[in-house]
């Protein structure tokens, strides 16, 4: 059925990329280090920065899992697109917070 066998090698061949074991192990170790770091940072009182640091570490961890374990790093442009759009769209959902932040502002003097 595959009647067009003169197909383009670049298009999908990337999926056959076989990541070396050493990369996986290194990623795993890095993830564990970051996990310990998350935990350690939570024991230090950084005020509002606790949550920022924790989220930052989580984002880095996620990026590592997505890029290396899930192989997006070697994926096609389309894979990149769909792997990123979910996270981007989630930001839109967080616009909800805008409502909660600005509800307090109702008493600002508006001039009448």
């Amino acid at each position: 059925m595959a009647n067009t066998d003169n197909h383009n090698h670049d298009s999908g061949a990337g999926h056959h990329h076989v990541t070396p074991v050493s990369t996986y192990v290194a990623t795993y170790v890095a993830l564990l280090v970051l996990l310990v770091l998350t935990f350690a940072v939570s024991r230090v009182d950084l005020g509002p920065f606790n949550i920022i640091v924790a989220l930052g570490i989580s984002v880095v961890k996620t990026a590592m899992v997505v890029l290396i374990f899930m192989g997006v790093k070697y994926g096609t442009r389309l894979t990149w697109f769909w792997a990123s759009i979910g996270f981007i769209w989630l930001v839109l959902l967080f616009l909800t917070l805008g409502d909660y932040v600005t509800r307090q502002w109702v008493h600002l003097p508006l001039g009448w």
């Binding site: 805008g98 409502d99 909660y100 932040v101 600005t102 509800r103 502002w105 109702v106």
Partner: peptide, 9 residues
């Protein structure tokens, strides 16, 4: 009861 500013946006 959504924030007024949010409504404007």
């Amino acid at each position: 009861g959504e924030s007024m500013y949010s409504g404007m946006v």
